[in-house]
């Protein structure tokens, strides 16, 4: 058996491919359904072409702007969450430390196991802020 290093296969394709997938999955489905529906109702291709082009124009604008706005509001939400965490770490460190300990307990760690990790994070405020809440930035939905 060939010796290949184990690489984890996550979603590595990047934002561009994600955007293409979002646009094309609807772009293939909705105009197709519209054309099929009109085929069942009208007798000329002119109407179908006109309606189809109108739908593609409207759909691409709505999908494009919708995706853009969703991604932007996600990023803004992430930024504001991060600022809130930064404030909390500064003003209420005990509460935040307890919050982090709770997260580890949810993963099944005992109090004794979690304590050194929490203590280590308290010594590194920047890492603590990153880890204390983890919204998923970049996901457009």
């Amino acid at each position: 058996m060939p010796q290949t290093p184990h690489t984890e296969k996550h979603f590595t394709a990047g934002d561009r491919v994600r955007d293409i997938v979002i646009g094309m999955s609807d772009g293939l489905t909705v105009p197709f359904a519209l054309a099929a529906g009109l085929t069942g109702a009208v007798a000329t291709t002119d109407i179908i072409v006109t309606a189809g082009l109108a739908e593609i124009a409207a759909g691409s604008i709505a999908m494009g702007l919708g995706g853009y706005l969703a991604a932007r509001s996600d990023a803004e939400h992430y930024q504001s969450e991060r600022q809130r965490e930064r404030r909390e770490v500064r003003d209420l460190p005990e509460l935040e430390a307890a919050e982090v300990a709770d997260v580890f307990k949810e993963y099944g760690l005992t109090e004794e196991e979690a304590a050194p990790v929490v203590a280590a994070l308290v010594r590194r405020p920047e890492a603590w802020i990153w880890g204390s809440r983890s919204p998923t930035p970049g996901a457009p939905w």
Partner: peptide, 20 residues
């Protein structure tokens, strides 16, 4: 991101429409 999504939509949409 918006342009990529819109462009992909147009490309996808032209496939069922071209025969018409």
């Amino acid at each position: 991101s918006a342009l990529t999504i819109a462009f992909a939509y147009v490309v996808g949409g032209m496939i069922p429409l071209t025969p018409y």
